[in-house]
Structures are given as C-alpha cells and as structure tokens.
C-alpha cells in the first residue's frame, strides 16, 4: 500500500520537471562537433582531396563497409580512384577516422541517414567529398610527407633539408 502511494507521488512530482526530450524533427538537438554521424571525406587547405588511398580506414573498419582503390595522379599525388562506404553496414564506430593518417575521413554530427531503399545508402566518393577541411583546418599531408608532388619538390616539406648532392664529398 505504502509503495503504491509513493509511486503515485513520484509520478506526480515528475509532472513539474523540465522535459529532457525535444520535439524532433521540428526541434533539433544540439550535437557536439565530435559526434559520430555521417562520414565525409575532406579536402586539404589548398582544396585538393586529402585522401591518399592508404587503405587504413578500410582495414580498421570492423564491418568491412569501406572499399577503395588507390591511384596515382601524373603529378605524384595519391588519390582514391573510387571510394565507397556502405552506410547500411556502417556502425559509426569512428575507427576509420582514428586510423586515417591524413585527416581525410571524418565523422560529422549529421545522423539523419534513413532511407526506404538500402541501395541508396551506398555512398561513392562524389557523395562523400566535401568542399572543406572539416575539423582539422590547417593540416596538409603532402607538406609533411617526403614524397615529391607537383608544387613541392624533394626537400621542400616541413622539417626537411634540401636534397643531397650525391656527387659532393664535402662533409
């Protein structure tokens, strides 16, 4: 008897509390920037795609929902010839973002990915690539890597000396 009355009292008190739920979809909840939602591919500060096709995201993916093919442009830059994420399989764990050495793949706070047709959840590179650097505005992998690409010769990366003159015997 006593417990029933206590329950009714608790429920009555809750009538005067502020609600936690929001009127979704009219009202959107706040999600922090690091929320793990829809995956995007970002570009470096110079506007070129960041992904170098290293396959680390696809290797890290626990549900194997990323497939890509690395290619090389005539100027020496590596890029993904195709890049496909099957969002109907993705579990938004963020391991791909963690594995990415170039900050190319990032998870965004957009979680509204529902579709009536599963086939529509297969995203290609054109669907994934955005026009900005995402969460990491300053980083450009090719300014750090030792690989020469057009516009950056050998020895022009950060923290690199000029190429050695092999024919010189000076110390």
């Amino acid at each position: 008897m006593l417990s029933m009355l206590r329950t009714i009292w608790t429920v009555l008190l809750h009538l005067f509390r502020r609600p936690i739920t929001v009127q979704y979809p009219e009202e959107k909840p706040y999600l922090p920037p690091r929320y793990r939602g829809r995956i995007i591919l970002s570009r470096d500060p110079d506007g070129d795609e960041r992904c170098v096709g290293c396959y680390l995201c696809s290797a890290a993916c626990p549900v194997d929902c990323i497939a890509l093919q690395a290619g090389e442009r005539p100027d020496g830059r590596r890029y993904p010839e195709f890049f496909r994420i099957n969002f109907s399989r993705c579990i938004f764990c963020g391991l791909c973002e963690e594995a990415c050495p170039t900050y190319a793949i990032q998870l965004t706070p957009d979680f509204e990915l529902c579709d009536y047709n599963r086939q529509n959840l297969v995203y290609e590179k054109e669907d994934l690539l955005i026009n900005g650097p995402g969460k990491y505005p300053g980083y450009n992998f090719y300014r750090v890597a030792g690989l020469a690409v057009s516009g950056k010769e050998k020895g022009a990366s950060e923290n690199e000396d000029k190429p050695v003159d092999v024919k010189s015997l000076l110390p």
């Binding site: 396959y55 990323i66 086939q119 297969v122 290609e124």
Partner: peptide
C-alpha cells in the same frame, strides 16, 4: 584475417 571491404566491394552493383 584483415582483408577489407567485404560489404562494400560490390555494393555499387547490389547492396546485398
């Protein structure tokens, strides 16, 4: 064991 892309390789043709 680390082979990747099993659920995405042919997803452009058929998601199943």
């Amino acid at each position: 064991p680390r082979a990747s892309g099993r659920t995405a390789v042919s997803a452009n043709v058929n998601v199943h």
